[in-house]
């Protein structure tokens, strides 16, 4: 895999949930290069989250080929997930959850460390670095269940950054964040994109996007209906325009 090769490449991909009578994603061909920032938009049920979970191999591909970070998603999903950060949508932890923030962030490296092996010094250093990047180093010893929704969201983002991902898939990352937290996350995302990490984000908050070149992918009914570049300020308008059909309203 050369640096110019796409880090995500999907060709004619179909994804279906177990027991479903029709595919959730239909004929998706899509590639993302290093350092690209992609915003995925579309109505509820369009297949945005399914697209993210197909990229990191959590959902079975029924047809087509998908390669992420040089690994075949169908045959080597675990290797893909060790290299891809995926922030899941809407998580809230019970106050009794028996994990501290640093334990949760360390979990982000468990796949890389491998079965049976213990975390090493560099794993703990990576945790410290990720906590520092998100500005939550002072929360390291706190139980995650005692934090606010926004702080929990930052911890989960730190968990993904702790494994130095080549690709970052973010599903509604701004959902629990206040204005200041959004700004700091956006600055961080800009830095990550500039360092060559590909970021694919599903979001309905188009007002605060990182200051970088943005590619907009609009999905509808499991298909990609629009794929173009635009300025961060225009993302909302482009998505609204693409979705001006009655089904999107």
């Amino acid at each position: 895999m050369t640096p110019s090769d796409p880090i995500i490449r999907l060709e004619n991909v179909y994804t279906a949930y177990e027991g479903a009578d029709r595919p959730t994603l239909t004929d998706i061909s899509f590639s993302v290069g290093r350092g690209e920032f992609v915003v995925v938009g579309g109505p509820n049920g369009a297949g945005k989250t399914t697209l993210l979970e197909t990229i990191n191999g959590m959902l079975p591909i029924t047809h087509g080929t998908a390669t992420v970070c040089g690994h075949d998603v169908r045959g080597d999903g675990v290797q893909v997930r060790c290299r891809v950060g995926y922030l899941l949508q809407n998580f809230a932890f019970d106050p009794l959850t028996p994990f501290t923030v640093e334990e949760v962030v360390l979990m982000g490296r468990f796949g890389m460390i491998g079965l049976i092996r213990k975390p090493r010094k560099e794993d703990h250093e990576a945790v410290e670095k990720a906590l520092h990047l998100l500005g939550i180093g002072d929360l390291a010893k706190r139980p995650i269940g005692k934090l606010s929704g926004g702080q929990q969201q930052k911890v989960l983002l730190a968990q993904n950054l702790a494994r130095d991902p080549q690709v970052l898939l973010l599903d509604e990352p701004f959902s629990n964040l206040d204005m200041f937290a959004r700004e700091s996350i956006n600055k961080l995302l800009s830095r990550l994109v500039a360092s060559g990490i590909a970021v694919v984000i599903v979001s309905h908050a188009f007002d605060d996007l990182p200051d970088c070149r943005v590619r907009v992918v609009v999905m509808h009914d499991g298909r990609i209906s629009l794929d173009r570049e635009c300025l961060p300020a225009d993302v909302g308008q482009v998505i609204r325009h693409a979705g001006s059909a009655p089904c999107y309203a």
Binding site: V78, R81, M107, R109, Q159
Partner: peptide, 8 residues
Amino acid sequence: RIAESVGI
């Protein structure tokens, strides 16, 4: 699900 997503 998070465990699966981190490669466990």
